[in-house]
Design a protein around this nucleic acid. Sequence first.
DNA 1: ATTCTATCGATATTTAATTATCGAATACAA
DNA 2: TTGTATTCGATAATTAAATATCGATAGAAT
Lengths: 226, 226
Amino acid sequence: MNGRLDNTENRHLKERKVLDRIKSIPLPAIRRYPSYLRRLKKYESEGVLWISATTLAEDLSLSSILVRKDLACTGLEGRPKYGFPIEPLICAIEKSLGWDNATDAILVGAGNLGTALMGYGGFTQYGLKIIAVFDSDPLKIGEMIHGVKILDIEKTADFIARTKIPMAVLTVPAAYAQLIAMKLSDAGIKGIWNFAPIKLKLSNDVIIQRVDLASSFAELSSRLKK
Amino acid sequence: MNGRLDNTENRHLKERKVLDRIKSIPLPAIRRYPSYLRRLKKYESEGVLWISATTLAEDLSLSSILVRKDLACTGLEGRPKYGFPIEPLICAIEKSLGWDNATDAILVGAGNLGTALMGYGGFTQYGLKIIAVFDSDPLKIGEMIHGVKILDIEKTADFIARTKIPMAVLTVPAAYAQLIAMKLSDAGIKGIWNFAPIKLKLSNDVIIQRVDLASSFAELSSRLKK
DNA sequence: ATTCTATCGATATTTAATTATCGAATACAA
DNA sequence: TTGTATTCGATAATTAAATATCGATAGAAT
Ligand SMILES: NC(=O)c1ccc[n+]([C@@H]2O[C@H](COP(=O)([O-])OP(=O)(O)OC[C@H]3O[C@@H](n4cnc5c(N)ncnc54)[C@H](O)[C@@H]3O)[C@@H](O)[C@H]2O)c1
Ligand SMILES: NC(=O)c1ccc[n+]([C@@H]2O[C@H](COP(=O)([O-])OP(=O)(O)OC[C@H]3O[C@@H](n4cnc5c(N)ncnc54)[C@H](O)[C@@H]3O)[C@@H](O)[C@H]2O)c1
């Protein structure tokens, strides 16, 4: 095999490998990526250029083998003795998450939790941008919440259809969550980040991600008990 | 082996088995328990007396084998053709989680998120009771927040020492979280429910449970991307 | 130039969790 | 009373994830 042929072959193989990998990054790795990102950005801001899986692992109290594997899933290759170049690594992780360009979203339910989320600056780091807020309470409609005006829930479907916005953050009481989720789904929403403590049942082409604080607290309680 | 001896043996074996089980309920099962509880309580309020693993599984879109196994971990035994008695099942799950008697906690950081959590009625269901709130902001100290007075952060150590309160909910900015956590640990806190996006490093006898919204959002993003 | 060391990445191995299988129990209907 | 459908629980098989092992690489030190 001559050099050129070998390269073509290799590139081809590599591309297939990268494609496979995109489909097959283990979920636990995906969940660890944000922690890596935060740490890497901190290093980057301090002017550090290279990081080893070993160092990152120590920072986050993880096994270095695990971190190395996770990083390998992004497709970026490390360099013996040096580790990984930080800036490309950040890009690679963000790309793997789909955080490389911002996701616009709406928020439904401007209550306690919805208001707190709106006031949270951290989301921009994840490429999440909440561009509209909806509620059913006449007292709230028209008010401003952290710089965004609260709109009438009745206008949601129209808004989604018009803007083709892909994602909704759902922070309404559990009793209304299923109904509203179905309306969002009908209107064409692609993903729902659900903070209400119920399992939403929608057609399979809507991605649902639930945040269940009770699960987290359960884990804490049971560990504390022992 | 005669009947009596056999019984003694059996009881002994069963007790050991129960003990083992307490230590060894898989974490994923623990995390599912709150969902079971919510559903069971709903059935209970409707006057239903028995529930099968099959039904519960359908309700929550889980595999019935998984649910049956999870329920078995509580130590309660089901009855063929009927399933499990709801009320004892609720008790058994709550006991497994340590939710059978309420846990008192303090909350540190009366900001956006801290305020939202204080306003959340759901926690009482988990046996979590926040009895005091602390902050460093002079403008906030002395104010009321959902019925609880905000106290000076400087008084935290003393409060913990005096009340022997086991748990703290940490909702301060990430930059302060480690420092405050160390103070809480020194003061004798046993568990910390940490909402700040950093890995706290404390002595191993403090149980730390982190809530990482970014992880959840990462999962959503990456699933949405595909 | 040679040796030493830290790191990577590929390939096992181990561990944990989920899913499947199957016999036993029991309510209920015929 | 008998048969049938349904559920349980024990055990086995499968799958996914974490951990361990080890040769290769490349920079730094001798
Ligand atoms: N607050 C928390 O800390 C917290 C924690 C965990 C989970 N949650 C969950 O988040 C959700 C919101 O909690 P919260 O404390 O913010 O409650 P909340 O009552 O403060 O807010 C709910 C908001 O939804 C609005 N709403 C009600 N029905 C609506 C409808 N049909 N259409 C549009 N808007 C509607 C209400 O007007 C209100 O503004 C709940 O499901 C709760 O279980 C909250
Ligand atoms: N708001 C959200 O939706 C959200 C979501 C995810 C994570 N978080 C995390 O939760 C934490 C709090 O977020 P937030 O939005 O409520 O912030 P915030 O700034 O609104 O509130 C922080 C509070 O902590 C207090 N504080 C600051 N330093 C303190 C100290 N040394 N001792 C005691 N109190 C102190 C401040 O006075 C303020 O009241 C942050 O770590 C944030 O990353 C928030």
